[in-house]
Design a protein around this nucleic acid. Structure first.
Lengths: 331, 331
DNA sequence: CTGAAAGCGCTTACAG
DNA sequence: CTGAAAGCGCTTACAG
C-alpha cells in the first residue's frame, strides 16, 4: 500500500502538493500531470483514517434502525443507500433489535465514530434521545416519527388513516373495526388510529371499535380471531399489512369470506399484498422515496444547508379485492 | 472531547501509561485507580481513527449483500449483527443492488476502510472476485455460495432440494414441475434444481419438467400461469418462497385449487408462508443461525484461528397444507 | 512499572 | 504555485 509520501517522492513533489492536488487546491498543470501518472500507476488510494483523524469528520451517515426484518425498514434503507451513494456518502447501518437502550447507546457510538450525520428510523422519542442529540452535536434526522425539536420526515399517517377510513365508509360500511398497535408507537399506534377515528367521527351512524395487537403476524391473527368473536365488523382496517395478513388468515379460520363477509385493509403496500387471495386493498407508503428524501436531507444538514423542520412523504390508496361494497350490513 | 493527553495530564501520568492502561498493559494498581477516576469523570472515549491509523485494523466486519429487501438477507444480517455484537465487533452493511461490478468495487472499498474481515452474501463468484480477495489480503467468508478457494458457509441446497423432491414423490406425485431461477445463481439456480433432479432420477415412472423464472413474485406468477398451460403438474416445487407465493396466485387465477388440483412447495421458510391460505409446505432454512455462524467464523479468521473451509447450515421441511396426497393423478 | 520520543498517513496554515 | 513543518490522537519499541 502506497502513502502520500510515496506518491510525492515518485512524482518529485512535496506531500503537501499531492494533498492539494487530491483536494482540489491550486496546482500547476504540469505538476498535476506528474502526480496523475504516478497515482494511476500505483493505484494509490488515501488512507481514510488519516484523513478522518485530521478532518474529524467522515462521509459516513449512520442509520439506526429498530429491526432488520421489516419491509418498511428495508425499503427505506434501499432509498437511503441509493441516494447517499449518489451524493458520495456511505451508509452505516446499526440495528437496535427494538431495544430502546441500545438505540441511545448507538447514537453515542456513531458520534464516537464521527459519522457526519445520523438518520434514525424511530419508534418513539424519549428525553434520553433528546439529551443524546444535544450532546453529540451532529445533525440528526428522524424518519417515521416527528418531534418538534428534531428534523423529521414522516409518513403522513394521520391523513392516510383518515383517507382509508373515509374510503371504507364510502363503500357503505357501518360496523368498522380497527386493529392497531400500542400507543408507544406514535406514528403507527397513535396517528393512524387518530386518522381513522376522525373519519368515523364525521358520521354519526357508524359503530367503530378499536382493538390492539402487536406488529407480529401470528399474534395479529390470534387477536383478529378473538376480535371476530367479540364484534362482527363488516370491515376491518388494519394498521399494517402484516396485521392485515394475519387478519385474513383469521377470517379463513373463522370461515368468514373476504370480502363478502368482512372487508379487510392493510397499511404499507408490501409486495406480497398484491399476491394474496384476495389481493389486499392497502395504503401504500413510498418507503424508497422517503429513504431517498431522508438521505438528501441529512446531507444538506451536514453541509450546513437548511431544510424544513418537518417533511411529509406521500402515500396512496391501492384499491384491490379485499374490500366489498356494503349497502346494508346484516349483523 | 477529551484526548488521551488530557487524561494523562489530569491523572498526572504519561500518555503512554494511559494507553497501556487502556490496552491492558502492565500498570500499577495505584496508577490504574487514578486513571480510572479521570476517565469516569471525563467520559473519555478513544478516537477510533487514531487507533485505526496506528493499528491499521478495525473491529468492523464488512458485509456485502446483493439486496436489502430479501427475507433471506435480512434474517442473515440479524444473525451476523447479533453475534458480532457479542464478540465486540461492528457490522458495516454494503448493498450492491445486485450489481456485480459494484460488488467487486465494494470489496476494494471495504478493504480501504480497513475492515477486519468481509462477509459476502454471494450470488456468484467470478474471477474478478477471486482477484479482489487475493489482492486485499483480508479474511473473506462466503455465505450462500461455495468456492474451493474461499471459506464458505452454504445452506445445503442440493440436499434440501433432494429432500423436498423425495417428499413430493412419497406423497404419490408423478407429474412434477420445478420452477427455479437462472443458473448464474449456483445455490438457488443450480443446486436446488440438482437436488430435485436427483430425487426424481431415483424413480423411473415420474414425468418431471424444469422451468425458469426470476426471484420476483409477480414475474413468477406470470411464468407459473404459462407453466400451467404447457404442463399439468400435480405438484409444483418452487425454488424460493416468493416464487411459490406467485405460483399460488397463478393457480387461483387459473381456477386450480391448492392443494387439491396442484400441490405447491416453497423454499426459505418466510414467516408469511404460514399465514397464506393454504399455508405453504416449504423448506425452512435457518438464516439467523447461519448469520450467527458466519459472524463467529469471520471473527475466528480475523483472529488467525482455523475454521473448516466449507460449512453447511441446517434446513428442515415444514409440512403444511399446500401439498396433497396423490395416489393416482388424472391428467 | 513508567515516560519521552517517534511515527501511523494525512491536512493545513505559513512563508517564499 | 510550491514546500517544510506542525499537528490530528493514538501506540509502541526503547530506555530507565
Amino acid at each position: 500500500m502506497n502513502t502520500i509520501a510515496d506518491i510525492a517522492r515518485l512524482a518529485g513533489v512535496a506531500k503537501s502538493t499531492v494533498s492539494r492536488y487530491l483536494n482540489g487546491g491550486s496546482v500547476s498543470e504540469e505538476t498535476k500531470k506528474k502526480i496523475e501518472i504516478v497515482i494511476a500507476e500505483t493505484g494509490y488510494a488515501p488512507n481514510a483514517f488519516a484523513q478522518s483523524l485530521k478532518a474529524k469528520k467522515t462521509n459516513i451517515i449512520g442509520t439506526i434502525i429498530p429491526r432488520l426484518d421489516s419491509y418498511a425498514t428495508s425499503r427505506t434503507l434501499i432509498g437511503i443507500d441509493e441516494r447517499l451513494r449518489e451524493l458520495n456518502f456511505h451508509m452505516l447501518v446499526s440495528n437496535t433489535n427494538q431495544d430502546l437502550e441500545r438505540e441511545i447507546e448507538n447514537i453515542y457510538t456513531l458520534a464516537k465514530q464521527k459519522v457526519a450525520g445520523i438518520i434514525l428510523l424511530a419508534t418513539q422519542i424519549t428525553d434520553d434521545h433528546l439529551k443524546a442529540f444535544k450532546q453529540i452535536n451532529i445533525p440528526v434526522l428522524l424518519v417515521g416519527q416527528q418531534h418538534d425539536d428534531v428534523y423529521s420526515l414522516v409518513h403522513d399517517d394521520e391523513t392516510a388513516g383518515y383517507a382509508i377510513g373515509k374510503y371504507i365508509i364510502q363503500r357503505g360500511h357501518k360496523n368498522i373495526a380497527f386493529l392497531g398497535v400500542g400507543e408507544h408507537d406514535i406514528a403507527v399506534g397513535v396517528n393512524r388510529k387518530k386518522g381513522v377515528k376522525k373519519a368515523v367521527a364525521d358520521h354519526d351512524d357508524i359503530d367503530a371499535r378499536f382493538f390492539e395487537t402487536t406488529f407480529n403476524m401470528s399474534e395479529a391473527a390470534i387477536r383478529a380471531q378473538s376480535l371476530f368473536d367479540e364484534f362482527s365488523p363488516s370491515a376491518l382496517v388494519c394498521a399494517t399489512d402484516n396485521i392485515a395478513i394475519g387478519a385474513v388468515k383469521a377470517a379463513y379460520q373463522k370461515n368468514l369470506r373476504v370480502p363478502e363477509d368482512v372487508s379487510i385493509t392493510g397499511f404499507g403496500g408490501y409486495e406480497v399484498t398484491a399476491m394474496m387471495h384476495p389481493s389486499l386493498t392497502t395504503v401504500q407508503i413510498h418507503f424508497v422515496d422517503a429513504g431517498r428524501t431522508a438521505a438528501s436531507h441529512i446531507v444538506k444538514l451536514v453541509n450546513g444547508e437548511d431544510i424544513p423542520k418537518l417533511t411529509y412523504s406521500n402515500f396512496e390508496i391501492i384499491l384491490r379485492e379485499s374490500v366489498d361494497i356494503r349497502t346494508d350490513h346484516p349483523i
